[in-house]
Design a protein around this nucleic acid. Sequence first.
DNA 1: GTCTATACAGGGATAGAC
DNA 2: GTCTATCCCTGTATAGAC
Lengths: 187, 187
Amino acid sequence: MIVAAADDLFYRQGFDHTSFADIAGTVSLSRGNFYYHFRTKDEILDAVIGLRLEATRAMLTDWALESASPVVRIKCFIRILIVNQTKIMAYGCPVGTLCQELAKLEHAAKGRAAEVFALFREWLAEAFRTLGAGDEAEALALHVLVWSQGTATLANAFRDEAFVRREVDGMCTWVEAQAARLSGTAR
Amino acid sequence: MIVAAADDLFYRQGFDHTSFADIAGTVSLSRGNFYYHFRTKDEILDAVIGLRLEATRAMLTDWALESASPVVRIKCFIRILIVNQTKIMAYGCPVGTLCQELAKLEHAAKGRAAEVFALFREWLAEAFRTLGAGDEAEALALHVLVWSQGTATLANAFRDEAFVRREVDGMCTWVEAQAARLSGTAR
DNA sequence: GTCTATACAGGGATAGAC
DNA sequence: GTCTATCCCTGTATAGAC
């Protein structure tokens, strides 16, 4: 599918640096025919962001179905850093890097790209709410995002596997500590 | 100065998206004359990275001279997020965004750009070492970098000032807790 | 729907006049 | 040193044949 190919290229090469020829070549289409499917580059970007939003929603729903425990669910999110470690070391986090590029391009779609972050934030906040975080839930969710984003950025800069494992372990024990703290205050 | 202008434009627009005409226009030079100073775009990039390395070194030395306390020094670093908040919300962290862009472009200068991160890491590690962190110092330094990078990325995505303050406060109390812990184990 | 051909702009880079 | 003129490539986008 064209959008999936564009998604991959935008991730690996960046949006601005990816040309129609790049995408058309990947899906074995001529440049001319490409415009039959998407009239402008912004249209492809919109479709890619839509695909990412959809894929993220599906993934989060899956994770929620797989495990009833909020702590386990949050750890599913954290584990992306391990599962996608190779890609992250090479290209960074797909969400963070796209948002930052669109910010520099002052692109209108930047807000929509940030919605992927918002999906994660809401999903994580829901998990923390289940743990009894109340008003604190959003802040805790954002902190998990902060930690994973920072880890992704520095994993990309330094390409240090041991570092990633250390931060992931740190995040996991932090989540457990928060769960313990929240179940304590709930009493 | 040309390099300073390029530095600013690379930060605000990204390296790839900034043209010779953009830089030449900012310093009121003709495009032709521009090539008298820099023969290729990579040469400008090299100069910009050199400038950033130099500026970072100078800043870190200043901070070290200003305060003898390692905790205060680390807080100087953390406070960049507040001091440069407006710019970070608009364009992200200069170091992180350049590294990530160069990674996607598979640019040879990516390693040199990451050296700015390495400067911060070493400087922070030295502060933690003074606190008695020993072998742990580098890991603690990297964690401060992780936290600040993640905060910068999400500050850029969500443009939420309260969030930035919260994370900065969290970092400061975390540093104090580490200092207390380390002075405890040193006994 | 898919192709070729082509228009057109922008950007990197060079040559050479002043 | 600074300028104009120019070359060439890439990239977006369109027209029109098949």
